[in-house]
């Protein structure tokens, strides 16, 4: 079994001293903000603090899109799946990213370089289909362009590592 490292969530837990289950979602939000995601270990700690079973917490957390269960990659890709982007082919774009990175939305590549998230609408429908990588927007993307975009970040990372 993997060894469990208990994260230090005490400063966050102190904000919710009474173990009341109504604090669950704010607590999850705070932990995610601090750590970038909800780890198994964090959910264990929250479970003991609130006296709510981990299964229930996981159930609540998976109900909402806002929670993630793996750490963010160095490059966080958001794919717009709003109506305009959909009409302009964002489903194919998403599929190209998934197959290019071999991950599903909500996941992070093994090397920690990329993470992927699906969002409802970025609000730039004129530029559809649209993706954002760490806040840099790429407009009018196609599956072919996706390959180039992903490679450009990989290259950037190489330069970063060597320089």
């Amino acid at each position: 079994m993997e060894h469990l490292i208990i994260p230090d969530l005490d400063p966050i837990l102190k904000r919710y001293p009474d173990p009341n289950r109504e604090h669950l979602i704010p607590l999850l939000q705070d932990v995610q903000e601090e750590q970038g995601y909800l780890s198994k270990e964090s959910i264990g700690v929250i479970s003991r603090h609130l006296e709510v079973s981990p299964a229930k917490i996981y159930g609540v957390a998976t109900f909402y899109n806002q929670f993630r269960f793996s750490p963010l990659g160095r490059y966080h890709i958001m794919v717009c799946r709003g109506t305009a982007c959909h009409v302009k082919g964002s489903a194919n774009v998403l599929a190209a990213i998934c197959s290019g990175l071999k991950i599903q939305p909500g996941e992070t590549t093994r090397d920690g370089l990329f993470s992927l998230e699906v969002v409802a609408c970025i609000g730039a429908c004129g530029l559809a289909p649209l993706i954002s990588v760490n806040g840099e927007y790429h407009a009018g993307v196609t599956p072919a362009k996706i390959k180039r975009i992903l490679n450009s970040y990989r290259k950037r990372e190489e330069i970063h590592a060597n320089g």
Partner: peptide, 27 residues
């Protein structure tokens, strides 16, 4: 015991252990 609960939402809902771990390492 609460080893399992609903996870996910709508058509993606399942009954699952936390993080869908195996029952052997669950409670």
């Amino acid at each position: 015991v609460s080893a399992i609960d609903f996870a996910g939402r709508g058509s993606n809902a399942t009954v699952s252990t936390p993080f869908n771990v195996g029952l052997n390492v669950s409670s």
